[in-house]
Simulated scan of single mutants.
Amino acid sequence: MDISVIKIGGNVIDHPEKSTQFLKLFSKFPGQKILVHGGGVMASRIGLSLGIEPKMHLGRRITDKETLDLVTMVYAGLINKNLVAELYTYGQQAIGLTGADGNAIRSHKRPVKGGVDYGYVGDVDQVHTELLESLLQQSIAPVFSAITHDGKGQLLNTNADTIASEIATALAKKHKVNLYFCFDKTGVLMDASNEASLIPLINDDIYKELIRDQVIHSGMIPKLENAFKALNKGVNHVWLGLPESLLLASKGKNAGTIIESQKYGLY
């Protein structure tokens, strides 16, 4: 199968008009597809209203027990089910999942490293590809929230970019897989406040320079780390950009940022 794994960020989901526009586009996207969504913006907003202050380190959320309950409710409940319900209005069959459903994605609790304790945050160990293949063969699009489990009854908050990358990597062992990261920028930018400063292509060397010069920081770092990891493990193509540019990108048009691995060439 040709499979597209498409990740949508919380900044898009948090705006109903942008979210609706994306879901209409997703329903028209050709071929078999999987949607992975974030929701950190909404989780932080709802958390603040409940007196739960968000804590971040290098673009990743530190998750104590109270925060885990919050993100599970917001990601796996409120956001996930609303996305699935809306997809059906556009004729797209879909099923909402966490990593615990069908044992789809199993993780382990991230160990304390360098004095940083991320709490109930999961690092992915295994993706149950047979379940995903079965759904895709029925033209049902899995819609994943950023919650996994450890197989021992513990839910874990897991970076949505990582989930998208791990799903793509696991499926790439048997299928041709393209990975798309959609967020609220035209792509990776030299200047985050200037949409015209798009970097159309990033390879390993360019990435190192951008990190050194602090052009890339915060949440963009794990996003690009996951992109390179996916390419180096057999994913066919990785792209980052605006949701509305997704169809153009799927047709090879100039839009967004393409990630290139020098080790494996341009995919």
Rank of each mutant, 00 (worst) to 15 (best):
W239L: 03
K251W: 11
S165I: 02
K152V: 05
D191E: 11
T148M: 00
K18G: 04
N157F: 01
N103S: 15
T169N: 02
D2Q: 15
T169G: 02
M190G: 09
V41R: 00
D184M: 03
S107G: 11
I105F: 01
G31A: 13
G153D: 05
I258D: 05
L23Y: 10
A85F: 13
A249Q: 06
G9L: 01
L210K: 07
V127H: 04
C182E: 00
V121L: 03
Q138I: 12
Q137M: 10
D191I: 01
G102M: 05
H237P: 04
G114K: 08
T20Q: 15
Q21G: 15
S165P: 08
K24T: 08
G256M: 05
Q137I: 06
G59E: 00
G234K: 11
A255G: 08
Q32S: 12
S165N: 02
H108M: 06
V84N: 13
L70K: 10
F26M: 11
V188C: 10
G265A: 14
Q126W: 13
N103K: 13
A170N: 04
E244S: 11
G153M: 07
D205K: 15
I105P: 00
R60H: 04
H217C: 12
A168R: 00
G219Y: 00
V41N: 02
L70H: 09
F183I: 05
V238R: 00
G102F: 04
N194W: 07
V143K: 07
A85L: 14
H149Q: 11
G114R: 00
P111M: 12
N232Q: 15
H128L: 05
A85Y: 13
L266S: 14
G96K: 12
T186N: 09
N232H: 15
L136K: 09
A192V: 08
K65V: 04
V188T: 10
V112K: 07
K229L: 01
F228K: 11
D150Q: 13
A164C: 05
T158Y: 00
E260S: 14
S19C: 15
Y75D: 01
L231R: 02
I46A: 09
P243F: 04
K24S: 06
G102N: 05
Q137K: 15
A94F: 10
Q137C: 11
G39M: 05
P54R: 11
E209V: 14
G114W: 01
T186F: 04
A192L: 04
K33Y: 07
Y75A: 06
S44A: 14
H108T: 14
N203P: 10
G77P: 10
V143G: 06
G115T: 07
V12S: 06
G102K: 02
L246C: 05
N157D: 04
G39T: 13
I167T: 03
S4K: 07
G151H: 12
N80S: 14
H149T: 11
G115S: 06
T89H: 14
F144Y: 06
W239F: 05
Y75W: 10
L68Q: 10
F22W: 08
I13D: 02
E17F: 08
D64R: 00
E225F: 08
L201W: 03
P54W: 08
I13A: 03
T89Y: 09
P200L: 10
S197N: 13
L179I: 05
K173S: 06
M220L: 13
G51A: 13
V5Y: 07
I105T: 04
L131P: 09
